[in-house]
Design a protein around this nucleic acid. Structure first.
Ligand SMILES: [Zn+2]
Ligand SMILES: [Zn+2]
Ligand SMILES: [Zn+2]
Ligand SMILES: [Zn+2]
Lengths: 165, 165
DNA sequence: GTTAGAGTGATATATTATAACTAATAACGC
DNA sequence: GCGTTATTAGTTATAATATATCACTCTAAC
């Protein structure tokens, strides 16, 4: 496969993406974030977050459990769920409700619910930074005089690479 | 409780709503729908759908299982999940992913993913018929050249009756 | 170094969901 | 009606996801 013959599209993550750097960025941001809030970013928390970030795909809790067992002892479901809870509360990971799985948050600074595009073919997941979405949904909710607290928006379909030509 | 002294707001379902009629409508529509598609609307399917519709609240599978056991014998998890799958495939119920629960579809004619407002206080759930939402989400997805197949939109918050004055 | 609180380990159990096989029932062609 | 076939439902077992509880350990603060 000749790289030069391919147009460089932003969705083709594999062509442009140094994922090690991506993970390191996430870990560094988490460290800062925890420090700011007076929370400890312990070894366990770092390991779990790193595992969650190991791919741009939703990570299942019991898969994390297995991976974590390879690098630590005394790991039980509680360990993983407790740590994921901690990371969620700090906005460092999101739970994908329709998959019972977890992904690292790509914009952990702003307070937000994540909105996701999930490819049903390759499982790649992408958090959308479209600030209009929340505004739209709030407008729709206002028609019913409903006050939104948490938005679950998970759009399952095909990413550009997996769409038939 | 004086009915006349209350303002009639559309969100105050209990004041305007004859829920028996609501259930009957849902069952009748399901019957028609199944007939159209050459599917059998059996006693089991009718009972499960009726239980799902028994309140405007998400129904958990194992709660349905318990209720169903009261009116039938030989009921196991499989029974419930199989029937819910059937009903979902025909667009008669939706699964609420963030709650692992099920609700009757209030517009089973149009092909659609449901969009929901869920009150975290009273659990009332309402399916929004805002056709703009899908259009908006598709626009947002198009920015990423993503093709949506299924939308999970579950907005958790407070219904008007549960909002502090 | 003591202590209080946070973090983690360990064990048990609850909740949600599926697999695989069998029996009953309905639909269909004759 | 009668045998054939496909659909529906029953049965049993187990997998996958998640929480509760209590005990022990570490750390930061004093
Ligand atoms: Zn990355
Ligand atoms: Zn894909
Ligand atoms: Zn109703
Ligand atoms: Zn409410």
């Amino acid at each position: 496969m000749s790289k030069t013959s391919q147009p460089k599209r932003k969705t083709e993550r594999s062509l442009k993406h140094n994922h090690d750097a991506c993970i390191q960025t996430a870990l560094a941001r988490a460290e800062v974030r925890c420090a700011q809030e007076g929370e400890r970013f312990t070894g366990l928390r770092r390991q779990v977050l790193e595992l969650v970030w190991s791919e741009h795909k939703p990570a299942k809790a019991y898969h994390l459990l297995k991976k974590l067992s390879d690098i630590r002892s005394g790991v039980a479901p509680t360990t993983v769920y407790r740590t994921l809870d901690f990371l969620q509360e700090r906005g460092l990971v999101h739970k994908i409700e329709s998959l019972n799985a977890y992904v690292g948050c790509s914009q952990p600074n702003a307070e937000h619910s994540g909105h996701f595009l999930i490819c049903e073919n390759c499982s790649e997941i992408r958090e959308i930074e479209n600030s209009k979405i929340s505004a739209w949904l709030e407008r729709a909710a206002q028609d019913e005089e409903f006050k939104i607290k948490t938005e679950t928006v998970e759009l399952l379909g095909l990413c550009i690479r997996c769409q038939p030509a």
